[in-house]
Every structure is written in C-alpha cells, then in structure tokens.
Design a binder for these strands. Structure first.
Length: 817
RNA sequence: GGGCGAGUGGCGAAAUCUGGUAGACGCGCAGGAUUCAGGUUCCUGUGUCCGCAAGGACGUGGGGGUUCAAGUCCCCCCUCGCCCACCA
C-alpha cells in the first residue's frame, strides 16, 4: 500500500517541530569547529504579503543555506525587514491608519508566510529598520560620516509635486507627472543632505577585482554608473573680462577644431556674463524654462536649442576668439558645466552648429577617406586618423596623440590631465515622515550640531500629521522640533528631514551578526568571524543603488577601522523575475498570482520546486507558461507523489540494491553536488527525477533501494525541505532531522563507466554506435569502425583518406570520392 | 544613440565553461491499461520529412569562415530582452 503524499498534513507539522527544535540557529560559539558560512538574502520590504518574487528568490537562497549547512558549515541565514519608506505612508494615508501599524501588520504576515514556506531563517536575529533599536545605529553611522565630512548639506535641484507638496524621487516621476496625483512636476532648488560617495569613486572601481563571483552585467552596470572618463582640463579665457573658464574634455587632441563654446543653463556665471553683455533678456527665458522643467523631462529633450551669450572665449591653443552660447544640452552636473564645442567630431556639437549656423572645422582626417568639405558634412566624423590644421601636431596619429597633447598643455600651462566621474553624491534627505530622523540640531549660534551619541536614538514621534504639506511633517511637531543646543544650551531646532531608506539597507547585514547589541552598531569580532558574506542572493533591480551604497558603506567602515575587509559581498547571485504571460505582474494589469494560496492548495515544497525547476535561477520565469492551468496538479507535486511511493516501497523492500542502482545513486550525488556548486537548481532537480525513475525500475525488478531512498531524501532536502523531512524521519524512520545530516558522498569507483558508446562517424556524420569497454585502445576502436556495416555503406565507393580516433568515444572516417 | 545579454521541439529547458551521440529532465499531446468515474495512477510513443522496416535526408535566428568534426570558436547581419541615455 503506497503512502500518499499529503503535504497539507505534514508541512505544518514540521514547521512547528523545526521551530521547537531551534534547527536553524547560527552558533556564535567560538569553539564550534565548523567553518562559518553567511548565506544572505536581500531583506524584505513589508508592503503586503509575500509575492512571487519573494518565493523565487528565497527558494534559491534557502537551498544554498541548507546545502551549506549539510556540507558541514555553521550557517548564518537571517531575515529582516526594510520597514521604512514612502509606500507605508501612502498606504497609511489611503487607509487612515498609522504607517507603523500598517508596517507591523505586514511584517507579521510575511513572517508567517516565510515560516510556512519552510525558510531556514534564524528567527532570533530578525531585525527591523523602523525599530529604534536599529535606527539608533543608522543615526550613529550618519554621525560617523558627518564627523569626517562625508555627510554634508548643499543646495540641489529636486522634483517637486505642487499638489502633494512634496519632493519626489526620480522613480516617482512618470513622464513628467507625479505618479500618485498626476500633477505636472516642477523643479525646485532645496538644501539637501548628501553622502560624499564621489570620494570613493576610484576605489569602487578598483575593488571590483574582489567581486569574484558577481554577474558580469551587474559589474558592468556599476562601472558605467560610476562612469570614469580620462581626459584633460583646459582653461579658456573670457575675452571681455580676462577671467579663466575651465572645461573637461576626453579629446584634447581636437582642441584646434573648437569653433564655439557652451555653458550649461545652470552655470553660475551665466547671469552675470549675460548681464555684462546685455543679453540677459534673451537668455533669461531659456534659463527659466529649464529651471521649471522636471529633471526627467529635460533628459528626454532632444532639441538643439540655445542662445548666444554675447561674450567670447579665447582658445588657449591658437588664440582664436570664439562665440559663447548657453544651451540645455550641456549638463551642469557633469564636468565643469561648460564645454568646448568641436562640431566636426562630436555629433551633438555638430547638430548645434548646423542649427545656429556655426562653422565646422575638421582637425582629424579619417583614415582612407577623402578630405571632407565641412559645408556638405551631414554628421560628425569619427576621430580616428591623422591630425590636421593643428600645428604643431599636424601629422600625428589620433587618438594616440592625446597623451602628447596633454603633456604639451601642461608644459604650456594651459591645461592638465584630468579624470571625471559620472557618479554624483548620494542625496539622502527626504521631506517625509516614515524614515530615520537625521540626528542633527540647527543652532543659530553653533550651526550644524550633531546630536550627542548618548542622546541617540532621535526617536521618530508617532503623534505626527504625516500627510505631505510642503515641508517635512516633523517640522509641524513642536515637541520634536524645538530643542536646546547641545553645545551652548540655547534654543535650537532639530533637522526635520529623514533619511533615504537606502541608508537603512546599506548596513543591515552587519547588524545581523550581533542584532541585540545595545552598545554599538555591530560587534566587530562577530563581523570579522562571519563576513564577508558567503553568498548574497537578491534581485537584479538592486544592481546599482543598494549594492553600490553597501560597497561604499563598507569602505567607510574599513577606513574607520571597524571591519577588516573592503567588499561586503564577493559572491552575488541574481534571481530572475517572475512574470505572467510575457508581462510584469502588476495590480493594474490584474495578472497578479500570489504564492501563498498555491502553498495552501499544493504545499510549500511544490511552490519551491516549481520555481527552482522552471529554468536557470537567474532567468525570468513566466508563471503562465510553467504553471499553466491553476487547477491542474503541478508537475513537481506529481513527482513528489512518485517519490513518496518509491521511497515507501524501498523502505519495505528486502532485496539487495542492484549494482545499476548503486551506480545511479553515486552519479546522482556527484551530479547534484556539482550543480549545487554552480547554483544549477533546475538540472539538480532533473537528476533527482532520474534517480527516482531508476529506483522505480530497480524496485519493479524486485531489487532493494534503501540506500538510494536515503540518498534521495538527503539530496532533496535543500529544495523540498518538508518532503525530505517526512521521508527521512517518518518513512525511513530516522530519529534526527534530515536538515542536520551531512551531505552524501559517493564512491568514485561507482561513477567510473565500464562501457561507453563509441560513435562511428563518416565525414563527421554519425553512422553507427557500438558499446565498447571504457579502456578500449585506439587500434581496437578503429578496427570496430572499419568493420561497421553502416559505416562501410556510407563510405561506399569512396576511399578513406584519414581516420580520426578519439578512443573510447569517437572515430571519424574521412572519405573521398 | 551607447552598453550588456539571449535566440535550440507544440512549451519550460539540457548539452555551450572543455568543439566530438543535439533535445537530458519535465510539461503538453497521442495510444493503451487500471477505474463506476476522473483534472487520478501506471505503461508506450513523441524534432521534421520519406519509409512497413532496416535505414536515409533535413534540423540549434540568417549568411560566411576555421576544423576531420561547430548549438559550442571567429566575422557580418536580423530579431528580442534588459540597463544607461545630450556624460563633452
């Protein structure tokens, strides 16, 4: 009588037993001989119950954590909540409840769901970024940066919604409109807090060597985001005033082709120079237009608009007097906010020149092309070739000449080699309620005063009208706002902005190492024992922001002497997205599929296996394609049913294990282990299915399969922890949890093939296959090939002119005629 | 416009790192068995075409190349996806 597969019965049972047994607690015992392994999943944003993305990501992360534990590691596998943030406020406003209530309700729901899914988390280390015991240390870290000049205030352009009366993140601006209310977004200059990540730009690039197991595309995205450009700074001179004005260029070899000069609309000298030249009336409308256009719209504009400033610059290499323009295509945020324009060799400059009737001068003659008439050019030329009209550099190869020209500029005192980064400082202040307050006091006498450490945390008050109203909601809370200055004791006010939630998430993985420490952010000794992280798992949508910020934080902590390493996550794995019918799941499309109802109906193991078996972990999963009809029994559920039957039969069978099955078991152990090392969960599971089929065949042949059954339960444990446990303890009768067992090993002699298939080809086409001993010699293999009827027929009248022998796998007869 | 990645059966995918039997495993489908019944379970078959079969031809987006041999390596092109996008 076969045992029925009833996950609805045994999954909740094991959930309780595992919790009672404390199965997944990481050991801090320094005498624990096991090597440590930190299996980290990106923590969860509690915006509701778990969604499919969670199920996918955590199924993979949990498989790794369980596998590493069975491999003999003392595993740290924690979970926490990225609990601050705007969605909590928006949802709370919509429902008329407090963001805290909404957040904690969701956390409790997600916590239950994670447990129901069988995630092997060490729940004693659970952390929550909106807990004062956590954000106290977020504030402490802010102060560490502040004291070293890495946190500072400056005026910046921001997206402003006139309806909601708040600043918006770029992500919240959709086609120039507020994503919440649809109002056209404005731009506003506001004084904001920044972290000086640009100080670390070069190190963030250099240390990429240490990211040994990151997806290449994530590294590339970060490299592009940092955007290092090598070139030169060249100093021009305003002809009318004699003042210097510097530009950055990657192509100093084209300096002789400069025919005009452009300032960014936001350049601080524009108004003064325009007033001086009497052009302010013409320039001003453009300046005001750009200032009122949201940042996201401006980036999409492609017009070559601009106006003449009425002043001129002198080109330092040839003394030419060139007109100066103001144009939005020059960005204030990059380089110096001013550019030298080389229309012959830069497409943007070329289009601007055509629009405004400016001259074009070719200074690099492309190889193999006839000299071009600048009048008839339709696009900028590539600048690879020979320099012309560039005395004293005529005839030099370009771009090889860049270094030479730069050296010359330095000698002549007209410029110098320079490096520019695209990376900008990290704007961390938010005029929002639901975040960690910035621990700064504004004193009329003492300026910006850090809150003394012994007064941390600066508690986020709960009795706040948190609806957006044109300023931070905390500014409307007098008891929070008004304080005595810690330095002079006089009346002062608190900073009312809160921190970006990415600050919270930039250090949470440190806190896991000593989550209850009330004396410090983390215990450096515990961190030194657990970190760097053994494997980090999470979504590719964090390729830049979270992962870059965390790398930055780690370098700051290293400089503070708090951690002995410079990269927190040397190994990173991104899961793919779960989509539906080719499209992203979303409420507005009405194509959301939630994991927990499927868990209810088919079990947690089915959800986990469906995710992991669907394809490579990093590939997207189209739920409609892999799950099909939601009422149909999932394929992996049916397989688990077969597993239960076959293991149950094996437990009752008394025969000897056939040699073929022993070999199949060894092959499975070898194959699954290799797949686990490369996170090939889909092929690992397929190998377990092969073993299941082999066991069935052996049992039908009246053989035993007890060894295979035990091995199957062990190999199944990382993927389907409930089923593996039920099989291990209940069906096979073992007293101790399968999740405390060692990963199986195999006898290498069992995976050695005695016979292999010798493939016989004629002119590269397979004509015959023969089973041969694995140690067959070349002469015998060749003799078999020559003797093959099929091969002979294929050779026909032809003559064999060459024989390629790769014993024992292949012989290729090359025939002619 | 730039960068990165991917195109293999009706479908999800193997094999690609290391050139050597293309399509493992699973879904679906077809036929059969069991069942009062089944959206159950089990068995068999399943790349396309020709053939009763043996066997043969074709086949990894398209074109070219290297090689005894290419899904795999090289060059060009097409399509799709993702990211960045006036970065001087």
């Amino acid at each position: 009588m076969a045992r029925r597969y009833e996950p609805a019965v045994f999954e909740p049972k094991w959930e309780e037993i595992w919790a009672a047994e404390g199965l997944y607690r990481a050991s801090e015992d320094p005498d624990d001989p096991r090597p440590r392994f930190y299996a980290l999943d990106m923590f969860s944003y509690p915006s509701g119950d778990l969604h499919m993305g969670h199920a996918e990501a955590f199924s993979g992360g949990d498989a790794i954590a369980r596998y590493e534990a069975m491999r003999g590691h003392n595993v740290l596998h924690p979970i926490g909540w990225d609990a601050f943030g705007l969605p909590a406020e928006n949802a709370a406003i919509k429902r008329g409840i407090h963001p805290k209530e909404w957040t904690y309700t969701n956390i409790e729901q997600q916590r239950r769901s994670f447990r129901r899914l069988g995630m092997s988390f060490d729940w004693q280390r659970q952390l929550n970024t909106c807990d004062p015991g956590y954000y106290r240390w977020t504030q402490w870290l802010f102060l560490q940066l502040f004291e070293r000049g890495l946190a500072y205030r400056k005026a910046a352009s921001t997206n402003w919604c006139p309806n909601d009366q708040t600043v918006l993140a770029n992500e919240q601006v959709v086609q120039g409109r507020c994503e919440r209310c649809g109002a056209v977004v404005q731009r506003r200059e506001l004084t904001q807090w920044f972290f000086k990540i640009t100080d670390y730009a070069q190190r963030l690039l250099d240390d990429m060597d240490e990211l040994t197991d990151w997806p290449e595309r994530v590294v590339t995205m970060q490299r592009n985001w940092i955007g290092r450009s090598e070139g030169a700074e060249v100093t021009f001179e305003i002809a009318e005033t004699g003042e210097p004005v510097t530009v950055f260029t990657t192509r100093p070899d084209t300096l002789w082709g400069v025919t005009f000069f452009v300032f960014s609309v936001e350049h601080p000298d524009v108004e003064r120079l325009a007033t001086l030249a009497g052009t302010w009336d013409q320039v001003r409308p453009l300046v005001e237009k750009v200032r009122s256009t949201p940042l996201t719209i401006r980036e999409e504009a492609d017009t070559k608009e601009g106006v003449a400033l009425g002043v001129h610059v002198v080109n330092p290499v040839n003394g030419e007097r060139l007109p100066v323009y103001v144009a939005p295509y020059v960005l204030m945020e990059y380089g110096t906010g001013a550019v030298m324009a080389v229309p012959a060799h830069d497409q943007r400059d070329f289009e601007f020149a055509r629009q405004h009737g400016l001259p074009v001068r070719v200074v690099v003659q492309p190889d193999g092309a006839d000299p071009v008439d600048p009048e008839t050019m339709t696009a900028a030329l590539p600048h690879e070739g020979v320099m012309v009209h560039s005395a004293p550099f005529d005839g030099e190869r370009s771009p090889a000449s860049i270094a030479k020209v730069t050296t010359w500029l330095e000698r002549e005192g007209r410029g110098r080699a320079a490096v520019t980064f695209r990376l900008r400082d990290w704007l961390i202040s938010r005029q929002r309620y639901w975040g960690a307050p910035i621990p700064i006091i504004h004193c009329p006498a003492d300026g910006l005063v850090p809150v003394p450490e012994d007064q941390l945390p600066v508690i986020l008050p709960e009795d706040v009208d948190f609806r957006p109203g044109g300023e931070s909601p905390l500014a409307r809370h007098p008891a929070f706002l008004n304080v005595d200055c810690p330095v002079c004791g006089g009346p002062a006010t608190r900073e009312t902005d809160t921190m970006d939630t990415f600050v919270d998430s930039s250090w949470y993985y440190y806190r896991y190492c000593s989550p209850d420490d009330e004396q410090r952010a983390f215990d450096p000794q515990s961190v030194a024992r657990w970190m760097p992280v053994g494997q980090y798992t999470g979504g590719a949508e964090h390729a830049i922001l979270h992962l870059l910020y965390s790398r930055f934080f780690t370098k700051v902590l290293y400089d503070l002497g708090l951690v002995p390493f410079t990269e927190p996550f040397p190994r990173l794995m991104n899961q793919g997205q779960v989509i539906y019918d080719g499209a992203r799941m979303s409420k507005s499309k009405g194509n959301m599929v939630a994991p927990m109802p499927i868990v209810e109906r088919w079990g947690a193991d089915t959800v986990r296996l469906t995710m992991l078996f669907a394809g490579p972990f990093e590939d997207d999963i189209d739920w409609k394609l892999i799950a099909g009809d939601p009422d149909r029994r999932p394929a992996v559920h049916a397989w688990l049913g077969r597993v239960f039957n076959v293991v149950d039969d094996a437990a009752g069978a008394s025969g000897d294990e056939p040699e073929g099955l022993r070999r199949a078991t060894a092959r499975a152990v070898k194959g699954v282990t290799g797949d686990m090392e490369r996170f090939r969960f889909n092929t690992a599971i397929s190998k377990l299915q092969v073993l299941t089929n082999e066991m069935r065949a052996a049992l039908d042949g009246r053989g035993g399969a007890r060894e295979a059954a035990a091995t199957l339960a062990l190999l199944l444990a990382p993927f389907a922890p409930f089923a593996a446990e039920e099989l291990w303890r209940e069906v096979l009768g073992n007293p101790e949890s399968v999740h405390l067992q060692s990963w199986p090993t195999f006898d290498p002699s069992l995976v050695v093939q005695d016979t292999v298939t010798l493939v016989i080809q004629v002119n590269g086409k397979v004509r015959d296959r023969v089973e041969v001993p694995a140690d067959i010699d070349e002469a015998s293999a060749l003799a078999l090939a020559r003797a093959s009827e099929n091969a002979r027929r294929a050779v026909g009248e032809g003559r064999v002119v060459k024989e390629i022998v790769r014993a024992p796998k292949l012989v290729n007869l090359v025939a002619q005629g």
